[in-house]
Lab assay of single mutants.
Amino acid sequence: SAVVMEEGSPGEVPVLVEPPGLEDVEAALGMDRRTDAYSRSSSVSSQEEKSLHAEELVGRGIPIERVVSSEGGRPSVDLSFQPSQPLSKSSSSPELQTLQDILGDPGDKADVGRLSPEVKARSQSGTLDGESAAWSASGEDSRGQPEGPLPSSSPRSPSGLRPRGYTISDSAPSRRGKRVERDALKSRATASNAEKVPGINPSFVFLQLYHSPFFGDESNKPILLPNESQSFERSVQLLDQIPSYDTHKIAVLYVGEGQSNSELAILSNEHGSYRYTEFLTGLGRLIELKDCQPDKVYLGGLDVCGEDGQFTYCWHDDIMQAVFHIATLMPTKDVDKHRCDKKRHLGNDFVSIVYNDSGEDFKLGTIKGQFNFVHVIVTPLDYECNLVSLQCRKDMEGLVDTSVAKIVSDRNLPFVARQMALHANMASQVHHSRSNPTDIYPSKWIARLRHIKRLRQRICEEAAYSNPSLPLVHPPSHSKAPAQTPAEPTPGYEVGQRKRLISSVEDFTEFV
């Protein structure tokens, strides 16, 4: 048969007729292969192709491409040299491709048809291009793949890379869960390890502090508590009631339409708007009261037996805890006409967050109470924005700035309102402590230090009264110190430094 060459192609190359033996071998191979691939376009007849790359030819070592076609129900084999250009295909004639002069020997084609199974398996396991790669995943090629499931790999992101949580363990979102698992493993320790309690022994800490320079003076030496005195035992138990972190309780009120001037209507609300609910979820963490331990979680007086509701929101960081007394989460009882059960919590909070959804101005004093010092007013606006402002009593104007209003988005509203309420509550605590000038409020841990110092002074006084020969370590507060001759004046800087060093040991009130 003659071949018409394309323009620009090399000279004529004689194409030899395939021997009958080659056709029989390739026909047997075509019957084993699956003929249901995917359909081509209507211009080209339905056909199945599979590209198999052999590394070497037997005796020649030339890479070839073998295409199996099922045109007219008769499979045909096409061998081509890759750099050459194939002729145009037609549905009426068999596929013809040019070969190099080196394939002119018909014996070479017979060798190609009689490829060993080793070469076929190696060509099938190679990388296939384009559409033949999808075909190689079918059941027909499963014989050339190794048996057994593939090893499982770690989760992959859409980009093909490992997620960040699997790369950096410290930033993994499941870090707290692993800590819980470690605690569970520790709890399952053997009885021999049960006595080993991690941490620092208080006796060891005391020993280090006792021999430090801070205890060089007799006034700073630790003293032993009497065991037989019940009054001192009660004082030590009272110390446990003062937490070592700051605590805040903040009221949250929802004002519906037409309720801006009605205290009873505001306290009777059992739910609010959708934006109000989203605002609550951002204030803190939802907790169930019956599962809380009052000595570990500050509840601000809420009952854990269901008297004040089942849930509330709280927030904490390293040095403070805040609980929100939310009116809509507290039960509304029919027998309580004046809502006294709610007001006994909300009316005693220094700061209230008022979500004013009424469309009218909310005035300070609508919720009557002796300790309502500051109101954080949240007014929802259009386009997911809110107006946040402050209202306070006249005696609080020096501590709280009420002249600045803020426009905040719904997303950042819980954070801004919480921070403003916490700052206002700190100012309210300082303002409330002014009624007792001898006990200015600095912080909870300073209050613990003052309680310890008062307890020490009482013990020293009782020891001096029981044994008059012992001198008083600290003179009583009601006694007057003996007159001392004025010492020589020293520079102001040295006096300030000495006073600062003494105050650092005794108390921190002056620095606050």
Rank of each mutant, 00 (worst) to 15 (best):
residue 371 F to D: 09
residue 470 L to V: 14
residue 307 E to Q: 14
residue 384 E to Q: 15
residue 431 H to K: 08
residue 406 K to N: 15
residue 472 L to A: 15
residue 274 Y to V: 07
residue 224 L to M: 12
residue 237 Q to I: 05
residue 455 L to W: 07
residue 355 Y to N: 00
residue 510 E to L: 08
residue 294 P to S: 10
residue 313 Y to P: 04
residue 222 P to T: 09
residue 259 Q to K: 02
residue 340 C to P: 10
residue 224 L to Y: 13
residue 497 Q to L: 11
residue 510 E to C: 14
residue 405 A to G: 08
residue 292 C to Q: 11
residue 444 K to R: 08
residue 502 I to N: 15
residue 293 Q to C: 14
residue 360 E to I: 04
residue 480 K to W: 12
residue 349 D to N: 06
residue 286 L to A: 06
residue 248 H to W: 05
residue 221 K to P: 15
residue 358 S to N: 01
residue 426 M to D: 01
residue 224 L to N: 13
residue 323 V to W: 09
residue 361 D to L: 05
residue 370 Q to W: 11
residue 279 F to M: 07
residue 265 A to Y: 02
residue 291 D to M: 14
residue 474 H to K: 14
residue 384 E to I: 01
residue 255 V to P: 00
residue 242 I to P: 08
residue 234 R to G: 11
residue 397 E to M: 12
residue 288 E to F: 09
residue 350 F to P: 03
residue 323 V to Y: 14
residue 220 N to F: 13
residue 471 P to W: 06
residue 427 A to W: 06
residue 429 Q to T: 12
residue 245 Y to L: 14
residue 248 H to F: 08
residue 325 H to F: 04
residue 451 H to V: 15
residue 387 L to P: 01
residue 372 N to V: 08
residue 481 A to I: 08
residue 320 M to G: 06
residue 348 N to D: 13
residue 437 P to N: 06
residue 260 S to K: 03
residue 246 D to S: 07
residue 303 D to C: 05
residue 356 N to K: 00
residue 487 A to Q: 12
residue 326 I to R: 04
residue 217 D to L: 14
residue 479 S to H: 11
residue 274 Y to C: 07
residue 385 C to R: 04
residue 446 I to P: 13
residue 234 R to P: 10
residue 297 V to A: 15
residue 281 T to H: 14
residue 472 L to N: 15
residue 451 H to R: 08
residue 458 R to E: 15
residue 315 W to Q: 04
residue 290 K to R: 11
residue 249 K to T: 14
residue 453 K to N: 15
residue 470 L to E: 15
residue 246 D to I: 05
residue 275 R to T: 00
residue 398 G to T: 09
residue 466 S to E: 14
residue 501 L to D: 15
residue 440 I to L: 06
residue 407 I to S: 03
residue 343 K to P: 05
residue 379 T to R: 05
residue 345 H to E: 08
residue 498 R to Y: 08
residue 466 S to F: 11
residue 432 H to P: 03
residue 274 Y to Q: 07
residue 244 S to P: 10
residue 352 S to N: 04
residue 267 L to C: 03
residue 247 T to H: 09
residue 498 R to V: 11
residue 420 M to A: 07
residue 419 Q to A: 04
residue 458 R to F: 14
residue 494 E to S: 08
residue 414 P to L: 01
residue 502 I to P: 14
residue 383 Y to A: 05
residue 360 E to K: 07
residue 328 T to R: 03
residue 247 T to E: 15
residue 352 S to C: 11
residue 257 E to D: 07
residue 306 G to I: 05
residue 294 P to Q: 15
residue 373 F to T: 08
residue 344 R to I: 10
residue 265 A to K: 11
residue 358 S to D: 03
residue 362 F to A: 02
residue 236 V to M: 14
residue 303 D to R: 15
residue 338 H to R: 09
residue 481 A to S: 10
residue 267 L to P: 03
residue 238 L to N: 09
residue 429 Q to G: 05
residue 355 Y to T: 01
residue 313 Y to R: 09
residue 486 P to I: 11
residue 255 V to G: 00
residue 471 P to T: 09
residue 350 F to C: 03
residue 326 I to H: 05
residue 407 I to Y: 08
residue 406 K to T: 12
residue 271 H to W: 15
residue 244 S to F: 12
residue 295 D to P: 09
residue 402 T to K: 07
residue 289 L to K: 13
residue 353 I to P: 00
residue 351 V to R: 01
residue 350 F to W: 07
residue 371 F to H: 12
residue 434 R to T: 15
residue 339 R to P: 15
residue 310 Q to H: 08
residue 410 D to C: 00
residue 248 H to D: 02
residue 491 P to Q: 13
residue 227 N to D: 14
residue 460 C to W: 14
residue 268 S to Q: 12
residue 273 S to P: 04
residue 464 A to R: 08
residue 356 N to Y: 00
residue 263 E to S: 03
residue 496 G to W: 06
residue 253 L to F: 05
residue 246 D to C: 06
residue 370 Q to T: 15
residue 462 E to C: 09
residue 247 T to W: 03
residue 340 C to Q: 15
residue 338 H to D: 15
residue 387 L to R: 06
residue 431 H to G: 04
residue 285 R to E: 15
residue 281 T to N: 15
residue 400 V to S: 03
residue 282 G to R: 04
residue 273 S to G: 04
residue 242 I to S: 07
residue 458 R to M: 15
residue 459 I to S: 06
residue 463 A to V: 11
